[in-house]
Design a protein around this nucleic acid. Sequence first.
DNA 1: ACCTGAACACCGTTCAAGT
DNA 2: ACCTGAACACCGTTCAAGT
Lengths: 187, 187
Amino acid sequence: MTEHPRRSDARRNRARLIEAATALFDEVGVNAAAMNDIARRAGVGPGTLWRHFPDKEALTAEIVGQSLDGLATLAIELLDEPPSRDILREWVSALVRHITRYRGIATSYARAAHTGDGPLGTRCLAVEQAATELVRHARARGQARTDLTGSELIEMATAVAWVNETTAPPDTAERLLDLVFEGLRPR
Amino acid sequence: MTEHPRRSDARRNRARLIEAATALFDEVGVNAAAMNDIARRAGVGPGTLWRHFPDKEALTAEIVGQSLDGLATLAIELLDEPPSRDILREWVSALVRHITRYRGIATSYARAAHTGDGPLGTRCLAVEQAATELVRHARARGQARTDLTGSELIEMATAVAWVNETTAPPDTAERLLDLVFEGLRPR
DNA sequence: ACCTGAACACCGTTCAAGT
DNA sequence: ACCTGAACACCGTTCAAGT
């Protein structure tokens, strides 16, 4: 949890752990990446990994944290875009791409967003607030139905990302988003 | 795999295993139910469980099999219902309720339906064929957009069931289905 | 102050030894 | 023909012993 350890070997180990976890998450996904493998790859013992990150969620939050914070930032930025831009769709697409990038992270998000606890939960709350603001603007623009909420938007995006990563070929996400935005009914 | 073992003690053990698994799946969900706990609860060794069901998927398929087959049957039955009935929505609701009943089964379905292998996969293929037929009729009735496919319908239902079981209060499923059917856009 | 690595509890799965 | 239960490989996590 300590962002900047005092001793230089501790700082170096922390950097190595983050590097190893990032690489392994990219290669095999969050679920398949074993904690002990991350430690071994970083050249440290499992106890050292535990000292820096008390559980897997803390490590996950560290790795995906910047990218996740960027989604909140993106939502705020989209508020100032001209009405010709489909800000709701653009943001949801970015969210789905973010989740898909790290396979297995959809479940972590869903649970963290639900409880609001832990290092992931607090970050998810920030994203949800940004989504609420975004939905408010999209509704005013006529780009979203008037009863849609920010958390519902995130739930739908998480659901699409989950289906996309567990069952479908990787390029089905946009097609599924079409269905979610336009509905299964005839227009 | 053998449906009807010859020796009476084997048949009795099989029945006990199914009973124990059904109870434990109901209590804690499919994911949290440990194989060894199921065996202990049935009063047999883990090896006996393995002999009757070679892995957890085989056991899961046995437990949820009848209910899953019922969904294919339901889809066929709905084909003959009068056009006043919203057959697509009724069937998807039933599918979501079925998945929600056994927590943790959404992932098994998604994977099984994707590969089409194993005892679950073959059953999922039958459900998908029934869904395709149902979608065809719903499109002719004007209850579904003309480019919707059966597998897409199942993907959306699985996604909603997954969100519902991992993040949301248990009664959110119908609200999410409203969003999926009508879309996030204003009508 | 921080690291090491053996150890723990738990999971699903296997198989040699029995009856 | 079928069951038993110890054992295996693997996971995340812990902690006593070091430097």
